[in-house]
Nucleic acid binder design. Structure first.
Length: 443
DNA sequence: TCTGGGGTCCTAGGACCC
DNA sequence: TCTGGGGTCCTAGGACCC
């Protein structure tokens, strides 16, 4: 048995915790460069603002309907997420943090009323963090996602589903007829794993609701569509095909990409951006203790603008796998030079690290004690151990004093030439008491 | 004027090998 | 002139997720 705990309108809810005056206003949180809406309050959804709507297209609603737009503060959301996840973990023995606002909880072995237990956790999250959430419970992850959708939609739109399912919906404790009734009320496109393309194709086949999809023959779905969709059908039928991943696997790719706030034409500006992206990506790489074999760099114009288009990427094989910012940034900027063409308005660039492997697979021992000053008294730039020490020291300084406190000289210093906006992330406070240490009573 | 930033998995097709 | 069969690896592209 699975539960899905999912924060309502998560980014907006995080903002509202600290700005209660926004509680009944239509609010959106905007993406990088304030480009488009990535979170919407219920009131904003009621104005028919779609996910990903460009700000310039909805801006008029600020005037006419009091729409409030906020720039995203991802450091804040990450911090709030940690707190929510820690409380949600009390629902059952295993937890998979699926995204910043969602976690699956494995419920095997939990006794007593699951609905009652879920309601307690839900109100605890609300009371302790100020964040509202919905909880769905079912025998498979796909059905738990569906139950969660019902729980949240029943609350937001009273005429959509019976109101007793608002906030917490347990599909495992109701009759088959009732379950089929709820699935029949749910559009097929709402099912986890059915995107726009599949939804359109399924509708052509007369499959309009989650109930219709659950009644499909898995083998037909496999041959007409894919094994992935077949798995979705089986899960809708109650057969678990996907388990809880309570230990997050290492990333297989790590990327840092950004759209620019204004068109960029010069190589020097691009180089500065790409160098910074490479540095960020390398940090992430070191955080998971991996090494990259390849560095991919891309630049592109805006597909939304009616002008000369250009989009190129280049993949550079590193001489040996590493996580060293300098090496990776150099590879990325060299790649950039090879694909750059003047005369275009560039809108976006990025660096991706590919073909990752565990750092210790073919490298020196990396666990170097930074506080041990006796080991290497003088810094030797060509000494691999010192290079590792340098990176570790950089990460430590940036962690403590905020991102960008210490940069490689090649990364540029921003200022007047800065063409992309990196939101300064808030420093993470160091808790003396972690939320996880607070005992969570088992019902 | 202004349109996010990450990821994953699967499949088809080509290159290459024996 | 006839032109097999099986396997692996890699890449690009398509689909999905938040």
């Amino acid at each position: 048995m699975f539960a899905l705990v999912d924060g309502n309108n998560f980014f907006v809810s995080c903002e509202r915790v600290f700005r209660p005056s926004l509680n009944h206003a239509p609010v959106v949180v905007l993406s990088n460069n304030d480009g488009c809406a990535i979170a919407r309050s219920n009131e904003a959804k009621a104005l028919d603002i779609k996910m990903g709507a460009p700000w310039f297209k909805i801006q008029h609603l600020a005037e006419s309907h009091g729409l409030v737009a906020l720039s995203a503060n991802f450091a804040l959301y990450g911090d709030m997420s940690d707190r929510m996840m820690a409380i949600a973990a009390g629902l059952g023995p295993t937890q998979e943090i699926y995204s910043i606002d969602e976690s699956f909880i494995g419920l095997d072995g939990v006794r007593g009323s699951l609905v009652r237990r879920a309601r307690i956790i839900r109100s605890r999250i609300l009371q302790w963090t100020g964040l509202p959430c919905g909880i769905g419970i079912a025998p498979t992850k796909t059905l738990a996602k569906l139950a969660n959708h019902i729980a949240k939609t029943a609350e937001r739109k009273p005429d959509s589903y019976p109101k007793e399912y608002a906030q917490v919906c347990d599909l495992s404790s109701i009759s088959t007829e009732e379950r089929d009734y709820l699935l029949g009320l749910t559009e097929v496109g709402e099912v986890w794993g059915v995107g726009r393309r599949y939804a359109a194709q399924l509708k052509e086949h007369g499959v309009h609701t989650a109930l219709d999809l659950s009644r499909m023959e898995p083998s037909v779905v496999r041959s007409r569509w894919s094994v992935v969709l077949e798995r979705t059908v089986r899960e809708l039928q109650g057969t678990p095909c996907v388990q809880i991943e309570d230990i997050a696997p290492d990333k297989k790719e790590i990327a840092c990409t950004r759209s620019f706030g204004r068109p960029v034409t010069e190589l020097t500006d691009l180089r500065e951006a790409v160098s910074e992206f490479a540095s960020r990506a390398s940090e992430k790489l070191r955080r998971q203790r991996s090494h990259a074999n390849k560095v991919l760099c891309f630049i592109r114009t805006s597909p939304f603008r009616k002008e000369k288009q250009y989009s190129r990427s280049v993949c550079i094989q590193l001489p040996e796998p590493c996580s060293d910012t300098h090496t990776i940034a150099q590879a990325a900027t060299q790649g950039l030079k090879s694909i750059y063409k003047s005369g275009y308005n560039y809108a976006k660039a990025g660096v991706m690290l590919l073909d990752l492997q565990p750092a210790d697979r073919n490298q020196l021992k990396l666990d170097i004690d930074l506080t041990d000053r006796s080991a290497t008294p003088a810094f030797a730039p060509n000494n691999p151990i010192d290079q590792v020490r340098l990176m570790q020291a950089m990460d430590a300084v940036n962690q403590r004093y905020g991102r960008g406190a210490l940069l490689l000289a090649s990364a540029g210093l921003g200022g007047a030439h800065r063409v992309w906006s990196m939101k300064q992330e808030r420093r993470t406070p160091q808790y003396t008491t972690r939320w996880q240490d607070i005992p969570i009573a088992r019902t």
